[in-house]
Structures are given as C-alpha cells and as structure tokens.
C-alpha cells in the first residue's frame, strides 16, 4: 500500500505540480496586475478572461445563464469566486452529468488551463474566494497533524466519518470520501462550501488550522493497516458482517468436518 500510494503520489505529482504552477502564475498575474499595473499581464489576464468566457458560454451558460446570473436549475455564479470554480470543475463535479441528487466527483472535463480560464472569468464577475497558492498550501510545514485531527473530528467527521471515508446525508445525498482528494480541493471546499457542505470561514477555522486538517486527512490516507484489513474504516457494521460470514462460517465448516464420519 505504501509502495502503491507512493507510486500514486508519483503519478499524480506531475499533473499536480502543473496545476499548481498554472494557478500560481494565474494568481501572481492577478496580484502583479493589481500592484504593478503591468500592461502585458493585464492583457494576458483579459485574454484568459475572454477564453474563460467562451468556455463558459459553450459549457456552462445553458444552466448558469449567459452572464452566470443563474437559472432555474443552477445557482448564480456571481461572487462565488475562482476557488469555487476550481473546485467544482477541477474535481469533475461540473459540468454535472445528471441532475439527480448531487454532483459527483469524476474525471475533469476541462484541462488545468481551461479550468484556470473559467475560474478567472467567474472571478472577474465579482470578488470571491481565491484559489489558494501552492505556497499557502504547504501543509507538511505549516500544519499540525494532532490539531488537525481534533479539528477534523469537531468540524468534519460528522459528515465525512472519523477516517474521512464519507457518510450518508438526507435524501440520498452523501458526504464523499476524502481519500485521494488533492489538498487544494479540500482547502477550496472548506472556504467555498460546495453543495451540501457549509462554509468554514477563515476566522472560525484559520488558514493554518485548515492546513492542519489537510495534514491529518493526508496522514489518515497514507496510514498503513496497523491491525490488518481495514474493512472500509466504517466502524462496527463491516466487523459484524465479517464475523457473521467468515468468522462463524469457518467455525461451522470445521464443526461439519468434525461431525462427519471418516471413511
């Protein structure tokens, strides 16, 4: 598992870095444009916005409205910020495949550059939460795993389960598993509150605390099996299932052999 997860991390490392790099560039441009009023970056930015607008018109406007003002089936995106777009589109939740209970995580439709363009466009409509920079996501350095666990159990475990495996909400909705979710997306989910999830403000859970939460989730994700098969880490239900199948099954099997006459 460790080897596997390392591999996975390796495989994922490239794209993640790429995405980080792109967003760092994107956000630096924004910051730079504000500070330096650099003409080239302003031009770049408006080009990105235009690209994003075109993508939006093609892929999103049928539900969210031509000007992202929202419609009957989809909310307005004015003021949701780049972070929200990056989360929803970057995790493949948007565009939605079907309009049933909730948007599911799936392979993203847009590549990182296009996601950035869409995010920049939506962010240009009205200010909202920014995509966190790679530098600000150094949870290994800035987070504390034990504090993160405490925060996770108080704020997250009620929906996502004690080991971040996900859980049931009402009417078929569910809190997804957090295994294998990129730190950036976890962070964005906390600041934007996608779908059923509430927002966790920076004042009630500070950015540093958010990094601690991410660090704890990553530690739980990479934790090897200390006591054998994890049985899904969902508590006593699977344990009961195992004892009623394998446990009593083995014992009854031996009992049948024991009582069978030898030939």
């Amino acid at each position: 598992m460790k080897r596997l997860s390392r591999l996975r991390r390796h495989r994922a490392a490239g794209p993640i870095l790429l995405i980080f790099a792109l967003f760092t560039i994107g956000t630096t441009f924004q910051v730079a444009s504000a500070v330096n009023n650099d003409t080239t970056s302003v031009a770049d930015r408006s080009a990105t916005i235009e690209e994003g607008r075109q993508l939006f018109l093609k892929g999103c406007s049928s539900c969210h409205g031509i000007n992202a003002e929202g419609g009957e089936i989809a909310p307005s995106l004015i003021g949701v910020g780049a972070a929200s777009v990056d989360f929803q589109v970057g995790t493949g939740r948007m565009p939605m495949a079907d309009m049933s209970t909730q948007a599911m995580r799936k392979p993203p439709v847009y590549n990182a550059e296009q996601v950035n363009a869409l995010a920049t466009y939506v962010a240009s409509l009205a200010p909202g939460p920014q995509v966190p920079s790679e530098e600000s996501l150094n949870y290994e350095r800035d987070g504390s795993v034990a504090d993160g666990g405490e925060l996770f159990r108080t704020n997250c475990a009620m929906c996502h389960n004690f080991a971040a495996q996900g859980g049931a909400l009402t009417q078929g909705k569910y809190a997804p598993t957090l295994m294998g979710v990129e730190p950036k997306h976890i962070y964005e989910a906390m600041i934007t509150g996608p779908q059923s999830m509430p927002v966790f403000s920076d004042k009630t859970i500070t950015p540093e605390e958010k990094l601690s939460i991410i660090k704890w989730i990553k530690s739980a994700e990479s934790e090897p099996q200390l006591g054998g098969a994890a049985l899904g880490r969902v508590g006593p239900v699977t344990e009961g299932l195992l004892v009623w199948t394998l446990g009593i099954g083995l014992l009854v099997g031996v009992a049948v052999w024991l009582a069978m006459k030898a030939r």
Partner: peptide, 22 residues
C-alpha cells in the same frame, strides 16, 4: 482483520461525532 481501531476514532468528547456511528 482490524477491529475497533480506536486510534482512528479519537478520544471522546461530547461535542464531536462521526458519521455512521453504530
């Protein structure tokens, strides 16, 4: 097979809860 992995559950406090508490 792991059973009752209490280190994952965390210590008890009345203000916390996990989804799927059975």
């Amino acid at each position: 097979a792991s059973i009752n992995p209490i280190w994952l559950y965390g210590p008890y406090t009345p203000g916390q809860i996990s989804a799927g508490s059975q």
